[in-house]
Amino acid sequence: MLLQLKNIFKWVQQGGQRVFLLKDINLEVEEGEFISIMGPSGSGKSTLLNVIGMLDTFDEGEYDFLSESVHTLKEKYRSNLYKEYIGFVFQSYHLLDDLTVEENLEMPLLYKKIKSSERKALVADMLDRFNIVGKKDLFPTQLSGGQQQLVGVARALIGKPKLILADEPTGNLNSQQSEEIMALFKKLNEEDGVTIIQVTHSEKNAEYGSRIINLLDGRKI
């Protein structure tokens, strides 16, 4: 098993009352799964994804990731854990505008303290694989949205993560670009065995996955 959420609660205090963002979430994810989280705005999709990605904390419950109990880890270990195993893809790509495509890809490797020669090789592989060698010296703003997201996915993958978390990865793309990105996810999932959890509004995108989780008001339904 890759990860397991047990009775996760998350709330904020508002006007003296608890407003629940996540309520009693239980979830088991096996390696190689492709899960889509769906639900209306404000239902807690992104919050759940952030909790799984260890970017956000929760108030109650247990979270095991590869048999490590995340809720008891210190920030440093937690960041080591997600640095090692998790890649993020965002709706608005979140590439660093000051860096070229190549440098954006290199960034996670730097934080993993991988040697320069190895970094070069990995980046070259990734550029090759995503067919963006010709764009390596361009800055994100010089690319189309689809191309930016391609770089975003490549950057998420370069650290060879076990799990990719994608928050509405196609939300800013047109339908053709969307299909390409989703096809890419499918291929990564099937051929490389990467586990993927995506948040999406689109039924069509959700169908690329093997399982759908529906949320409403912070609850799994």
Partner: peptide, 16 residues
């Protein structure tokens, strides 16, 4: 701010 956020998700810790 955005840059800090992105870097953190890419595995940067505070010291970095």
């Amino acid at each position: 701010a955005k840059e800090v956020g992105v870097r953190k998700t890419l595995g940067s810790n505070k010291m970095n």
